[in-house]
Design a protein around this nucleic acid. Structure first.
Lengths: 127, 127
DNA sequence: CGGAATCCAGACCGATACTG
DNA sequence: CAGTATCGGTCTGGATTCCG
């Protein structure tokens, strides 16, 4: 992952690179428009496909389906199928998904704060 | 933003919706492949355009240019132009960008941890 | 209900060339 | 150096239809 050229970098640049790589790794796994939202939607209980689609505004069935597959592949969620009629499929967070709690906490706090700040600057512009 | 229908939701659903909205707001502002990485790259000092492009692997000039514009518009960075010859342009984090420290800290810690976990599971698969 | 398959328009993105 | 302009390909994502 690291190149020989890195040996020529200043210490602070190396640290910066390390941070950059860590953030890049994180975004690779949970980046994109939807993954974190799906995880949040599953945080207070298991949900079924259509529940998720209703809860997460703007997501299409195809995209939701794809995202759920990827999340399952990467070990963030479990898929439980009940072969009743009609079929019921339930999605459940894995234990590993809980390691994201810190990230989600930070992100949702920041999001709340940011929304307020945007509102403020809207008022300024009108006045 | 909230609809009347929300009055019919159970309390835990409302909380879930609130979280969902907060995360959605955050992702709207700092989502995407590059914005957070650019901010990280600027965290230990101002950088010029080409420095950023070299530091952030895989980003093209066009995309970097667009992202920088958006980040400036949304108040995360400042653009300083020195009209020497050749022209030098420097990008600098705003104070507001520092409100992201918590998010970035959480994200980079998680990214580091996650990379280790992925490595482990790779070993498992080979064995 | 929970998807998969298909079709299709538009966004996105890289490469290249060019400007001040 | 710090971008912009243009072109062409890919990839995303919506709408619709169909299946178990």
């Amino acid at each position: 992952m690291s190149k020989l050229k890195d040996n020529n970098l200043l210490p602070q640049d190396q640290q910066c690179k390390a941070r950059l790589n860590a953030v890049a790794d994180a975004l690779y796994a949970i980046g994109g428009k939807w993954k974190l939202r799906i995880i949040v939607a599953l945080m207070d209980g298991n949900r079924r496909f259509n529940e998720l689609q209703r809860l997460i505004e703007g997501i299409s069935a195809k995209v939701l389906s794809n995202e759920l597959k990827e999340l399952e592949l990467n070990g963030f969620i479990k898929r439980n199928v009940f072969t009743s009629t009609p079929v019921v499929v339930e999605y459940e967070l894995s234990e590993y998904a809980e390691t994201l709690n810190g990230v989600l906490q930070a992100l949702s706090e920041w999001g709340t704060m940011h929304r307020e700040k945007v509102k403020e600057s809207m008022k300024q512009e009108i006045a």
